[in-house]
């Protein structure tokens, strides 16, 4: 399933400074594995050693937060757009 991937901020560094590129996978989890094969170190930007996504990483499938879909098991179809954004947060 070819999908368009968009990444922001520092995550662009591990994908050769690209903002957008094409990859594939049947699910979000598989997509992350495939991107990690091509760009080693990609997965550790998003998840811990057990594969659990960081609390502060946001992944959107066509503008829907995957936390409200099926998380890493969310299925992908041709032409989907997956966006990966580190949170922007702070506090007093």
């Amino acid at each position: 399933m070819p999908v368009k991937v968009l990444v922001t901020s520092v995550i662009q560094k591990v994908v050769d400074n690209q903002r957008a590129f094409t990859s594939e996978g049947r699910t979000i989890g598989e997509l992350i594995s495939n991107i990690d094969s091509r760009y080693p170190g990609f997965r550790e930007q998003l998840a811990d050693e057990q594969g659990v996504l960081h609390r502060f990483v946001n992944i959107y499938l066509n503008d829907e937060d995957i936390r409200y879909l099926k998380g890493a098991d969310t299925e992908l179809t041709d032409g989907d757009e997956v966006s990966i954004l580190p949170a922007l947060a702070g506090g007093a």
């Binding site: 922001t8 946001n58 959107y60 503008d63 937060d65 949170a87 922007l88 947060a89 702070g90 506090g91």
Partner: peptide
């Protein structure tokens, strides 16, 4: 604060 990610996107 935590910026709304969809607006950020």
């Amino acid at each position: 604060y935590e910026m709304n990610p969809l607006q950020m996107l």
